[in-house]
């Protein structure tokens, strides 16, 4: 399927589209886009399902009540996946694979993806948002914290990039 995959969209036009979606979100919902909150809400639901008493007592998840999934960003997260799927099918880009460099073992890539996920999941909660909910959304309304977050994100990303470069070696 990959062979017939269509080329990616012009990044500048994609950026304009993304900016319009974001503006629309602000005008309709009154809030921007978000992804990590949806993930955290799902985490709260899972923890609440496994350890209901403990979760209700915790300060952070506990504050979300008995049904943490009744939240607009959970719906947005599901929407994002649906939108991604629609587009991937339409553009012939749906293919089940573990993306990595040829010289990188699967286990290494899996470990790195998991570690990255853990760090990102934690950091998104700490900073009250991720690239979507904090950097892009807050940046669009010119919030200081969002710019600070964005700068720090790229600074540490570039600083750490060297150490994990081999996962993409072909």
């Amino acid at each position: 399927m990959n062979s017939s995959a269509k080329p990616y969209m012009n990044p500048y036009l994609a950026g304009v589209c993304l900016g319009l979606v974001l503006t629309g979100s602000f005008l309709i919902l009154g809030t921007g886009l978000g992804a990590s909150s949806g993930i955290a809400r799902i985490a709260a639901a899972i923890e609440g399902w496994m350890l209901p008493d403990h979760t209700a007592k915790t300060t952070y998840f506990g504050a979300w009540g008995k049904s943490p999934l009744d939240y607009y960003l959970v719906y947005m997260f599901i929407g994002t996946m649906i939108g991604g799927l629609i587009s991937a099918v339409k553009e012939n880009r749906l293919s089940f694979q573990l993306e990595k460099g040829c010289q990188c073992s699967s286990w290494k890539r899996i470990t790195l993806a998991l570690t990255g996920g853990l760090l990102v999941g934690y950091a998104s909660r700490l900073a009250q948002g991720c690239t979507s909910g904090q950097a892009l959304t807050g940046g669009a309304v010119l919030l200081t914290g969002s710019f600070v977050f964005l700068i720090c994100l790229f600074a540490s990303g570039y600083a750490a990039a060297y150490f994990v470069r081999r996962q993409w070696n072909d």
């Binding site: 993306e99 998104s124 900073a127 690239t131 700068i151 720090c152 600083a159």
Partner: peptide
């Protein structure tokens, strides 16, 4: 948060969205 996020981003190759 930004510093940790950046490291996680480059290690994992993804961000949440």
């Amino acid at each position: 948060g930004g510093l940790i996020f950046g490291i996680g981003f480059v290690i994992g190759g993804w961000c949440p969205g």
